[in-house]
Write a protein that binds this DNA or RNA. Structure first.
Lengths: 199, 199
DNA sequence: ACCTGAACACCGTTCAAGT
DNA sequence: ACCTGAACACCGTTCAAGT
């Protein structure tokens, strides 16, 4: 038998997994390092070996969140027969994620009081990059930055809709209506028709 | 002379004003009731007479924020010669507010872990109502809910753009580009042309 | 009605010490 | 390299007591 049951070299991963669950139940305000350590069966000082402070844990959670959302986006794109269907599925995956893990989403897009570490920004960049795959190849006459504008507008709109649902301001069903309306608006716009090519 | 310099019957207002400033510098995580009491020159138990707990103070801040944003929206609409100009000005005011007071904006649209008190939801409703004034009178052939869909989409998009800027993901200038693109998209869309009448 | 101040449980962070 | 456990300063909340 061993006095260190499972967390032998993987305490960091265990803490992150537990923290993600705790985030869903008590929110980021209620997330406590000491409680996390207790649940993991280690001393309250143990997390220090993996996260320099509480903010470092929150940043790691945000980074992990971006990577998970990126995977969800990629998987939504896979097998979509057109850019239009791909975008509709990505939009739904995006909003689903943001509602299911509202506190995590807030962490990912939180206003930076201090400077954000590079790892989080890079993970955000990977999400941004995944959206390229939905848009198809870049056209020859495409204006500089038009694709970026479209991608950012897409992300901003989905995140805004999800925030309305997560805050209880509107019902989930109305959120779906907004997603449909937003996608029609985005894809049928001049910018959308210029930028989203078929594939 | 008096031992209670200024806070005599208005401690609540003083605490709220200080808290709003504190929110800008340290964020909502760093907002401490005891520090607030210290700055106001009262004992650490004094805030309890006005806010039952920390969450009650945060809710009061959110409510106050909605009312201030509502005033900003109303003032942006005043004197606008057309719905189009009105919406452009409202959009700018909205994003300005959200960037200047990013932490407050997060509080206003935060995911509800517990139930939100009615006062906050009502203040949010007043903001929503102010947007009606920008849209002009409702047309006779207008589909049910189309106006609501448009208003919500407008708010969601602006909030999403502001979150991208506030989180340092994009620069302020790029945020302005997104606002312009979003307004063109919204107003030129089928929904927009149906819903925004001239006045 | 509003504020004081002691008391309590909890927290994040630091750090010397162990393995 | 990773974890323990004491120590410290700080916090939210409660509550009897004062005015």
């Amino acid at each position: 038998m061993t006095t260190r049951p499972f967390h032998h070299g993987n305490l960091r991963a265990v803490l992150l997994e537990q923290a993600e669950g705790m985030l869903r139940t008590v929110g980021s305000d209620g997330l406590s390092l000491r409680e996390l350590a207790r649940q993991a069966g280690v001393s309250h000082g143990a997390p220090r070996s993996h996260f320099i402070d509480r903010q470092a844990l929150l940043d790691a959670l945000a980074e992990q969140g971006f990577d998970r959302l990126t995977r969800a986006v990629r998987s939504a794109v896979d097998g979509a027969e057109s850019a239009r269907v791909g975008f509709d599925r990505v939009a739904q995956a995006y909003v689903d994620f943001a509602i299911e893990d509202a506190a995590l989403m807030e962490l990912m897009f939180a206003a930076k009081t201090g400077a954000r570490p590079g790892a989080v920004q890079e993970a955000a960049g990977r999400l941004f990059g995944a959206l390229d795959d939905v848009m198809g190849p870049s056209g020859p006459t495409m204006a500089d930055g038009a694709r970026d504008t479209f991608k950012l507008l897409f992300g901003a709109t989905m995140q805004g809709i999800a925030a309305l649902v997560a805050s209880g301001r509107i019902a989930r069903a109305q959120g779906d209506v907004l997603v449909t309306a937003a996608m029609a608006m985005l894809l049928d716009s001049e910018l959308g028709r210029e930028v989203v090519t078929r594939h």
